[in-house]
Structures are given as structure tokens and as C-alpha cells.
Simulated scan of single mutants.
Amino acid sequence: MDVALTSAVVSVVGALVAVGALVVSVVDGRAGRRNTEFLGHRDLWWQRWSWVADRATSDDARQRGTKGRTMISTLTDEAFKRLLDNRELTTPRLLASPHYAPLMRAEGAEEELAQLRIEWRERQERARARKLKYEASFGES
């Protein structure tokens, strides 16, 4: 009878240890998700402000003067992607043209296309951060 009682106590203690390990694992996982989300936001913050600082301190006057553009335009992602795709198609053709190339270069078309590409990457990073935050919200429930 003592052996049966001892093995029952050992089984109960083992089950309690397993439940405790599960609770610790869940708590640690939630903390890890929060930390990952924080690191993602911090990285985005750093990218945004380093971008602003680079443009503000640039030696190129065209980089400093943004022609009224903000860091992220007010267009929706879909409208912005259409604009970028249109510029991706038309700008190289116009720059290759002997007639339009000087006009396009004078207007800074190459730099504008580069800035549109940078803004698209920033938009993609923000979308990834929103997705990460959305997925992390399921673990918080």
C-alpha cells in the first residue's frame, strides 16, 4: 500500500511540475512577443528618424528640399503603389529619350523615383509591423 501511495504522490507532483512548466512557458512566450513587437517599433522609429536626419543634413539641395513632401505621403498604399509602378515604367523610358532626358534630369526625376522607392519600403515595414502587432494580439487574449 505504501508503494501505491508513493507512486500516486510522485505522479501528482510530476503533473503539477508539468503544469507549472507550461504556465512559465506561456508567460515567457507572451513576454517574448511583447519584446519582439517593441524591437520592431524601435527599429522603425530609428529608420524614420535617421532618414529625416540624412535628408535634413544632406549636401544636396534637392535632398534637403522635399518639394512639400512629407516622409510618408497621404496616399493609400494601393494608390501609392500604382503611382510607383507608373513611375517605374515611365521614368527609365523618358531618361533614355534624347529629347526628354535633360528635362527629366533637371526636374530631379531620378531622385524622385529613388525617394518613392524608399517610401514604398517604409510602407512595407509599417505593414509588417501592423501584421506583427495583430498576430501578437492573439497571444494576449
Rank of each mutant, 00 (worst) to 15 (best):
L22F: 10
L22V: 12
V23N: 03
V24Q: 08
V26M: 06
V27C: 08
D28L: 15
G29T: 13
R30S: 05
T36P: 04
E37L: 12
G40D: 04
R42V: 10
L44K: 09
L44C: 05
W45T: 09
W46H: 14
W46M: 15
Q47L: 11
R48Q: 14
R48P: 08
W49T: 13
S50E: 09
S50T: 10
W51G: 14
V52T: 07
A53I: 08
R55V: 02
A56V: 03
T57N: 07
T57M: 09
S58Y: 02
S58R: 01
D59E: 14
D60P: 01
D60S: 02
R62F: 05
Q63P: 09
R64G: 02
R64A: 01
T66W: 04
T66S: 01
G68I: 00
R69E: 06
R69D: 06
I72L: 08
S73W: 08
S73I: 04
T74P: 13
A79S: 08
A79W: 04
K81G: 10
K81I: 07
K81W: 11
L83A: 07
D85K: 03
D85C: 04
E88Q: 06
E88C: 01
E88A: 07
L89M: 14
L89V: 10
L89D: 14
T90F: 06
T91P: 07
P92L: 00
R93T: 12
R93I: 14
L94T: 03
L95M: 03
L95Y: 02
L95S: 01
L95D: 04
L95H: 00
A96I: 00
Y100V: 01
P102I: 00
E107Q: 11
G108M: 00
E111I: 07
E112P: 03
E112V: 05
L116N: 03
L116A: 02
I118R: 15
I118T: 14
W120H: 10
W120G: 07
W120Q: 13
W120I: 06
E122C: 15
E122Y: 12
A127Y: 07
A127W: 08
A127C: 06
A129N: 12
L132S: 08
L132C: 05
K133R: 12
K133D: 14
E135F: 15
A136T: 06
A136Q: 06
